[in-house]
Design a protein around this nucleic acid. Structure first.
Lengths: 225, 225
DNA sequence: TCTCTTTAGTGAATGGTATTCACAATAATA
DNA sequence: TATTATTGTGAATACCATTCACTAAAGAGA
């Protein structure tokens, strides 16, 4: 990479960093190229040398967020041996919550309201999302292959499609898919309500609540840590 | 109410209706007073006769949404006798999902990303939220009073504050509060992921999945319908 | 080193947004 | 009918994204 290319990459990163900080300060949808440029002591139109438009910058931030979340989950999971399915799942869920609370902007970019006028490139965000969900599904899948998974009690195969070629999750057996969705919805429900401030103050220890919920889920699939 | 007051009220309602329709068409955060005025064949500044600013309009829409959701829950619940705790809870949860899918804009207003620069008046939105959550808590509370509630298996009293005077949920016993939060987070997790399009297509029957999840929850608190 | 070409950054212009305000037109009231 | 309150207008301010022609500077090749 030439000197010029390195400088260019550094500026692209700086733009993202400033944008992230400003969104953290005043909300996701308040992303303003003008404000970013002002902080960088640039004229607004200069940013168009680095991102073709606002949507491209959002896409870059979104893909960074996906990658960052996936990395956080992988790191959490890897400190437990491959066969400790319950411990790995629990670690992944705690990492999911911790990452969400620590990166509210990125969480909102991924899981919050669609940004008006913005439609992410599904060919990029789809696989990025699958890499996140895949962390959970892969653990469950290994437990299943090892005959250690008891499908979630409400498992209803009829709710799932038959695995078809175009389906990116086709290689997961129905009990794996179903149990994975059950875990993800459980985890996400608590995190999203907590992050947006809907858990009443009378719940003064949300982490304990979250752990309890996830442990109950793990017990329901026979994977106590 | 005088003729003038009626006309004024009608215009206020028309503004909200147009705003709702436009948000449904192109996203919550795309609410534009100019666009609303254009559709009503008014000049933008005319709208300021009816709402002091954009935030006031958002607040009106938000309170409408809360009231509409609470009404939908009440209607669903009231078709079952008061002692049919399980059936009432199940009906409320199905109504929560149905309302959310039918009113995605209102759902996003309530539960989605905070709108940048907008801070709702907590003295109004707080009680509105409590009326929604209260539908669930009241049913659970009655079951508890009747000795029919088995607290959720992960019930951990220590995660809750001691009931204090300022707490709007102070009159619910800890097992009621905890079990209520467990149900709400379960329900909300599925609905929010479904609404934002994160449930993979391989789950081709989300309603059955949702019912299964809620029935498992109801069973966990001993309130099968 | 000197020229040529690529690139970063500028500044003006267009058209969108919320909001304020002075003014005109209209409707209700005394 | 004369007065008053209210509705709507149009201009002005101050943001925003985006495009484009232009300048200045940096790198490449001779």
């Amino acid at each position: 990479m030439s000197r010029r290319e390195r400088a260019r990459e550094a500026t692209r990163e700086e733009i993202k960093a400033v944008a992230r900080r400003q969104m953290a300060a005043s909300g996701t949808a308040s992303l303003s190229l003008t404000a970013v440029a002002r902080e960088m002591e640039l004229v607004p139109s200069a940013l168009y040398r680095y991102y073709p438009d606002r949507d491209a910058l959002i896409t870059a931030l979104l893909l960074d967020a996906f990658a960052d979340l996936a990395a956080a989950l992988h790191i959490a999971v890897e400190s437990f041996p491959a066969h400790a399915y319950g411990a790995r799942l629990k670690a992944a869920s705690l990492a999911y919550r911790a990452w969400s609370l620590a990166h509210p902007v990125d969480f909102q970019l991924i899981f919050g309201n669609p940004i008006p006028g913005y439609h992410g490139p599904v060919e990029l965000t789809g696989p990025a999302m699958q890499r996140v969900f895949g962390v959970f599904l892969d653990i469950i899948n290994e437990a299943y292959s090892a005959g250690r998974l008891r499908p979630v009690p409400d498992f209803t195969p009829a709710a799932l499609c038959l695995p078809s070629p175009g389906n990116p999750f086709a290689h997961y057996a129905p009990p794996v898919m179903y149990s994975g969705l059950a875990g993800w919805t459980t985890m996400h429900g608590v995190v999203t309500l907590e992050l947006f401030g809907f858990l009443p103050h009378s719940l003064h220890d949300p982490e304990t609540f979250f752990r309890g919920r996830m442990e109950l889920y793990l017990a329901s699939v026979g994977l106590e840590p």
